[in-house]
């Protein structure tokens, strides 16, 4: 209560805080990242619209690697375990995270899942986020790289409409390139849009996953994991 004149007003006291609102998520993400690194797992947060081809890309990645790499995945969706089942059939050790109404995965969901499930020895760990070009970009999961899967059927200006996700991406994989002859799409306009929202634009066209066409992507994965292993001590 005001002590000066007895008016009955309360005193307003400012308290400086200056903290990231998602600092709790960041802390869990840092823990996840350190866990992945200590086990030699190069971890990729796979984001993109529903239907962009995230699951198809991972199926193709598994086919292309064959026995030359150990893969595991978490597949996030609001409902159903369909994507997880597809990835399992493709030979990827996978668990589903069904989020209910949540439009994104967060670090706590990933951490919780890994407490309940040991994927074993893994070279590449894919976290297939909920299909959504907005919300997943906000939450650090502890990944080593962000990959956005963008199909050429989505429209040339999608990167300009959803700049946050592309600003945080390390790689953009352009999928459904085999449909190009049937579409009125200018691929150069897609590249141009990406360059306006993504500073170190690394764009890889995926011609047709079922026909191969994943060579650059696999090479990028191998090199990125090798770079990670040079910086960490693998203990498990």
């Amino acid at each position: 209560m005001c002590q000066d004149c007895g008016c009955g007003d309360v005193n307003i006291v400012p308290v400086e805080v200056q903290t990231r609102i998602l600092s709790r998520n960041d802390k869990v993400a840092a823990h996840n990242r350190s866990h992945f690194a200590s086990r030699g797992m190069f971890t990729i947060n796979v984001m993109g619209s529903p239907g962009a081809g995230k699951t198809a890309l991972l199926e193709a990645t598994a086919r292309a690697f064959g026995d030359s790499a150990r893969l595991a995945a978490l597949a996030g969706d609001l409902a159903t375990e369909n994507d997880a089942l597809r990835l399992q059939r493709a030979g990827i050790r996978t668990r589903a995270i069904t989020t209910g109404q949540a439009c994104h995965l967060d670090a706590e969901m990933v951490h919780h899942e890994l407490h309940a499930w040991d994927p074993g020895e893994v070279d590449f760990f894919f976290i297939e986020n909920v299909g959504n070009l907005v919300c997943p970009a906000v939450y650090d999961l502890g990944q080593n790289a962000n990959v956005v899967v963008l199909s050429i059927t989505e429209g040339e200006d999608k990167p300009l409409k959803y700049p946050t996700m592309f600003a945080k991406a390390d790689v953009v994989l352009l999928t459904k390139m085999d449909l190009l002859p049937h579409l009125r799409v200018d691929v150069n306009a897609i590249y141009d849009a990406i360059a306006r929202v993504m500073p170190e634009a690394l764009v890889m066209p995926i011609i047709a996953p079922e026909l191969g066409g994943t060579g650059l992507w696999l090479e990028w994965l191998r090199q990125s994991r090798a770079a990670l292993l040079r910086t960490v001590e693998v203990t498990a």
């Binding site: 209560m1 309360v10 005193n11 307003i12 006291v13 400012p14 308290v15 400086e16 805080v17 200056q18 903290t19 990231r20 609102i21 998602l22 906000v138 600003a167 141009d192 360059a195 306006r196 929202v197 993504m198 500073p199 170190e200 634009a201």
Partner: peptide
Amino acid sequence: KSLRCALCNEPARLAAGDEIFLQRIELEVA
């Protein structure tokens, strides 16, 4: 514009604009 410096050809860095920050609160103290 394209996020690359026209003079140096360096990729740009985001200097501001990705904040999700709690700055301060005000308390009513009796």
